[in-house]
Each structure stands twice: as structure tokens, then as C-alpha cells.
Write a protein that binds this DNA or RNA. Structure first.
Length: 95
DNA sequence: GTGATGACGGAAA
DNA sequence: CTTTCCGCCATCA
């Protein structure tokens, strides 16, 4: 494949990682917020990238939690506003 | 090369 | 409120 294509792919990945890393404690971002055009890519990055990323601060667009109660507790510890089993996005969503 | 899949999203019913 | 369907990007069989 072409070099330019590869480079662009990787920079997109890098950007995704940066955004995740910059999510402040106590707030969250959705997959869509992180990359509008490829939310699935964000999920893939989290599933395959094992760096010290705050993976628990990434949730779905409707506020539901992808990784289950384990993740839910971590968010609770940071004081993320919840509404039952979902995150209250209006209050918790990072800018 | 094709087709299925995933830590998804949004629209439609 | 729910389920279904289709689009999205990158990987994998």
C-alpha cells in the first residue's frame, strides 16, 4: 500500500489516543465525540492499545457503558454523574 | 480479491 | 422505551 495512506491512518490513531488521554477525571467522552466518522475505530483502538489510557472514560453515545459494571464503578469513583446504569451525559460529557 | 466482525451511531418503526 | 437496519473504518479468515 501507499506510504501516505499508512501515515494518515496512524496519525488518526494517534489523535484518538491523545483525545482519550486528555479526558479529565470525573468526565467522559463518547466514541463518536472522539472520532465522528469512525467510532468503531475508537473501540478497536481501545481494545488493541495497551497504554495507560483512561479507557473507562469512554462510553457510548447514549450514555450506556460498554465494559459493564467494572467500568461503572471506576466512573463512580471519579464522581461521574450517573443515572441508573447509564452516565448522565449532559453533566458528565467533557468539552 | 470477498465477507464477517467489532468496547459504535443514528434514523426509522 | 425497544428492536432493526444500514453506514462507518480497520482487521482478519
Amino acid at each position: 500500500m501507499k506510504r501516505a495512506a499508512r501515515s494518515e491512518r496512524e496519525s488518526r490513531i494517534a489523535g484518538i489516543i491523545d483525545r482519550i488521554r486528555d479526558i479529565p477525571p470525573g468526565s467522559v467522552q463518547t466514541y463518536g465525540d472522539i472520532d465522528r466518522t469512525a467510532p468503531r475505530l475508537v473501540g478497536r483502538v481501545l481494545a488493541t492499545t495497551h497504554q495507560g489510557l483512561p479507557w473507562h472514560r469512554v462510553i457510548r453515545a447514549d450514555g450506556s457503558i460498554p465494559k459493564g459494571k467494572r467500568q461503572r464503578e471506576l466512573l463512580l469513583e471519579e464522581g461521574v454523574p450517573m443515572r441508573g446504569d447509564r452516565v448522565d451525559l449532559d453533566r458528565a460529557r467533557a468539552l
